[in-house]
Structure formats: C-alpha cells, structure tokens
Write a protein that binds this DNA or RNA. Structure first.
Lengths: 211, 211
DNA sequence: GTCTATACTACGATAGAC
DNA sequence: GTCTATCGTAGTATAGAC
C-alpha cells in the first residue's frame, strides 16, 4: 500500500524535522513513489500532516485503551485508583523511553509547542481522555473532590514522565549515558513511581489538615 | 545596532518556527535591514542560529547566577539546601510560565528534541551548571551521597517544571483556561513546591530504611 | 558596514500522459 | 492510480555598488 508507506515515512520525517522542515519530495522518494501521489492520496502536505496526526492518535489511543476505556467504575477504591495511576504512568514511561514509538512522541511534543489543527485531533482523540481519567483517578485515590487540585497534580505527575522525551538531550547529559539503557530506564521509572506515591500521600495529608 | 536587532528577532523566529521553518528574509525584513547583513554579521543562517544560542545561554545564565555561582558552600545544612532547591525551581517556574522569555524557553526546548551544535553551547554554558548544582543540593538535602539517585531525582523535579512550557498546549486544555493567569501559575507553583518537599522527604525516608 | 542585484537550489502544487 | 513535466514561489549565498 502506497498510502501506508507514505504515512509511515511522513510521521518519521515530520517528527524529526517538523512540518516546515520535512519535504514532500524526500518523503515520496523514501516511499519509492512520486511526490504527486501525496497530492493524490492526501490532498497535499497539510493533508498528509493531519493524516499523520490521526494515525498517531489512533495508535497511541489503542495501546492505552485497555487501561482507560469504559471510564472509571463507580465504586472504585482509593487503592485500586492508585494502582491504575501507576499502571498508566508506567505505560507512558515505556512510550517515552522506548525507541519504538520515538516518532509518535516527538510529533506530539512538537504540536504541544506550536499547536496546529493537528493538536485538536490528538487531544480530542486520546490525550484528553487519558488526562481526564487520570484526574478522576487522583480524586478517588486521594479522597479530594476538588477537581482543580487534581488537575494541577496530574500536570506535575505527567511532567515527570514527559520530560524523558521532551528533555531527552539534557537527561542523557546529566545521567552521563549515551542512551537510555534498561538500567537507566528502570531507575527513572522506579523514581517516578516512588514520587507518585509521595505526591499522592501528600495530597491525602493536606486533605486531613484542611478538615 | 543592526546586529542586536537581528539577534533579537532571530531568537523569536527560531523559537516559534525552528531552524528550518524560520527564514532569513523575514528576519532581516523584520529587523528593517537587508538579508545579506545576516551573512555579513553572522556568516549565514547557521551562524545566526548559534549566536542566538549563545545569547540565550548568557542571558538565562545571568538571571540564575546569583543562585548558583560560587558552587555549594562546604558546610551547607540540609535545610539550607532544600531552601535553595525551592528557590531555583521557583525561578524556573517563573521562566517557564512568564510571557517574557517565551522565546528563550522554546528555543531550548527545540534543541532538546533535536540537539544540534547549539545544544552543547547551552548545556555547557549554564544548563549543565544548574543541573549539577541541583543534584549536589539534593544530596545534601537528603543526606544521600549516591550521585545517581540524586541525578534521577533532579530529572523528575525538573520535569514537573519543564512541562509547563514543553506541554503548554495540553496544560491549558486540561486546566480549561485560555492562558496561564496568575492564579493558575500560583496553583502550579505551589503544587510543585509541595511535591518537591514530598519527594525529598521520601528520599530521606528511603535512606533510613536502607540503613 | 550596509544595501542592491543576481545566481542557484529546493520547495509545493498542478496539469496531463499513461 | 501513478508518474513526468513544468510552473511559480521562496530559500540561502554571493558579488559588487555605495
């Protein structure tokens, strides 16, 4: 399938060079086809970019759906909520450190910094669902029904994970390793998990002070 | 000064559009000069980009120097170290949320994702110093002389702050506000400070378990 | 030092052959 | 459906006038 090949290569190119940096000529050449097939299949560079965003949203949403789908059950216990939070964050750590979906993460990171129409699709497609779920889980896990506090906490929780990709170059420099090997990843993942517990416990302690 | 004007505008352009996305023609036009003056003053687009990186490193290093310079005193107490960690992170929160230095942060973020020669200058110039200082402070504040643990912790601490810029679009969506206003910033800053304490306390508790 | 003029390359879009 | 050919635009670099 020419479409499939184009899309695959386009995602990698857009991720590493950005919308402006990537060229339709190179993408088409790498896919072994003519540049005009991009016009035919996707209506142009812009269309190809949006198709890439949709593809990414669908793919990443798929691998998270088993953790998120169906919403949060009614009678979920704080302990269960905390377990699920850990599972979601661990899954994200994997995505942010793994070499497999490097392009997906980078593509999304770029959209964060300078959002285009593609961002709406990604956020509406799966990112938003995951974040709202996380915020809800934080509320259950901490017994704090203040939605604002939960959302702020989610931002900081996610931040720890996202940095692994967004600030990759700095992380590697600071940790003095050429690449994130298995031991580095497990050290980071373990620390993030421990921090998450510490943060959630803190939120619980604050709640008890409030009352 | 034409150089100064060119540099200023170049930083904004490179930050918002990236190295490939920005055009020397637009930059020169915005600076009210001819494009060829970029060649004359900076040797070309590449040179202008590197000059922008140097300028950013110098500027950001300057505003942090009073917190960092002179290294960490010999007999610093854990409490003093913790206070200094809070001060550095608060200063970073300001930089990441403020509209003033948006371009600087974005420029650095881009370099993180796809490092070029400019990254070495920024990391070598001030970023590295700040991070090593933070790691050292974490060691003192927690009484853990394990450098690796401290560095991993610093990555997560910084991550919370960096996300405010790197994932700006998502943060705004999740918090349902069109812009980071004063109250949102103080909520985020307060949470980050609380988290930092929780994380440091956790590191201390772990140390006591180890022994 | 600064600007004008120009050369050259590469981009994206499109029309038309097959 | 896919490719070739071509158009118009925009990019950087450079030479030379002032």
């Amino acid at each position: 399938m020419v479409q499939q090949r184009l899309l695959e290569i386009a995602i990698a190119e857009f991720a590493s060079k950005g919308l402006e940096g990537a060229s339709t000529r190179s993408i088409a050449a790498a896919a072994g086809t003519a540049m005009s097939s991009i016009t035919y299949h996707f209506g142009g560079k812009e269309g190809l970019y949006l198709a890439a965003a949709d593809h990414i949203a669908a793919q990443m949403g798929g691998t998270l759906s088993h953790l998120i789908d169906g919403g949060v059950p009614e009678g979920m216990t704080p302990a269960a909520a905390r377990t699920l939070i850990h599972a979601i964050l661990a899954s994200l750590v994997e995505k942010m450190t793994g070499q497999k979906n490097t392009s997906y993460s980078l593509f999304i990171m770029r959209e964060q910094m300078e959002p285009t129409a593609a961002f709406e699709r990604i956020y509406g497609g799966m990112l938003g669902t995951m974040l709202r779920t996380l915020a809800h889980l934080v509320q259950i896990a901490t017994g704090r029904d203040d939605g604002d506090t939960a959302r702020v906490a989610v931002v900081t929780l996610i931040g720890q994970v996202v940095t692994l990709r967004a600030s990759r170059a700095t992380v590697l420099k600071l940790m003095q390793c050429p690449d994130l090997d298995a031991s580095a990843i497990s050290a980071l993942g373990g620390r993030i998990a421990a921090n998450t517990d510490a943060i959630l416990d803190r939120l619980i302690a604050e709640r008890q002070e409030l009352s």
